[in-house]
Every structure is written in structure tokens, then in C-alpha cells.
């Protein structure tokens, strides 16, 4: 029943993208707003709910989902290999400075805001 895991995953994705596009339309953008995030919420909610009920997903169903999760890094490697790296380098100073500084400075914000999260929990 591994295919059931792939199916649950697919169902969450379609439902999530539907929600994301609906939200996009609602706020006047003709695009997806957080569709993947909604899909992840559905999956977390479903698996946590079933566990709480004492009826977790059967092991073989879970294995189907875990198989895709194991392909995650290889898929990311393929994704890296199809980026427009040449354009990023050739664009000159503006893209490198704007994108580069935004990235480097943003890193420093993470510990500041993460503290906000830990205050919330303690």
C-alpha cells in the first residue's frame, strides 16, 4: 500500500495548491499564495490527528511518503543544476550586491527573531 502514501501526498498537494490559488484570487493576485504551505499543514494535521486517535497511518503507507522524502535532496540537486547561474553572475554589480547583501544581512536577523519564538514558549 505504498501507493496510498503517494496518493495522500498528492491529494494534500492538489488541495493545498487549490487553497493557495484561492487565497491568491481573494487578495487580487492571479497566483499561488502559500499553496505548498497549506499542503504541508494538511499532511501534518492528518498524520498528527490519526496518531492522536491511536490509529496512525500503516507502516507501508508511511514508507511511500518517506520514499518521496528520501528523494528530496536529489531533487534539490537537480533543481540547483537548472538554475540560471550565468545570468546571476553576468548581471553585474546590482544583482550581486542587492541579492548578496539581502542574503547576508538577513542571516543575522534569524537569531534576533528566533529569540521572539523562544520567549513565546518559555
Amino acid at each position: 500500500m505504498e501507493i496510498l502514501g503517494l496518493g495522500i501526498l498528492g491529494g494534500c498537494m492538489i488541495a493545498g495548491l487549490f487553497m493557495g490559488n484561492l487565497l491568491g484570487k481573494l487578495v487580487g493576485l492571479n497566483s499561488d499564495v502559500g499553496g505548498v504551505g497549506f499542503a504541508m499543514l494538511f499532511l501534518v494535521f492528518l498524520s498528527n490527528y490519526l496518531e492522536l486517535k491511536g490509529k496512525p497511518l500503516p507502516e507501508r503507507v508511511g514508507r511511500g511518503i518517506e520514499f518521496i522524502a528520501a528523494l528530496y535532496i536529489p531533487i534539490i540537486v537537480a533543481m540547483a543544476a537548472i538554475q540560471n547561474v550565468v545570468a546571476a553572475i553576468k548581471g553585474g554589480a546590482i544583482p550581486i550586491l542587492a541579492g548578496g547583501l539581502a542574503t547576508l544581512l538577513s542571516f543575522f536577523l534569524v537569531p534576533l527573531l528566533a529569540r521572539l519564538g523562544s520567549k513565546e514558549t518559555s
Binding site: L9, C12, M13, V36, L43, S47, A69
Partner: peptide, 8 residues
Amino acid sequence: YAIISTAY
């Protein structure tokens, strides 16, 4: 599809 699967 793979990103969503990591939420499991």
C-alpha cells in the same frame, strides 16, 4: 511534491 513529503 518532495517538500510537502518532508512535513510527514
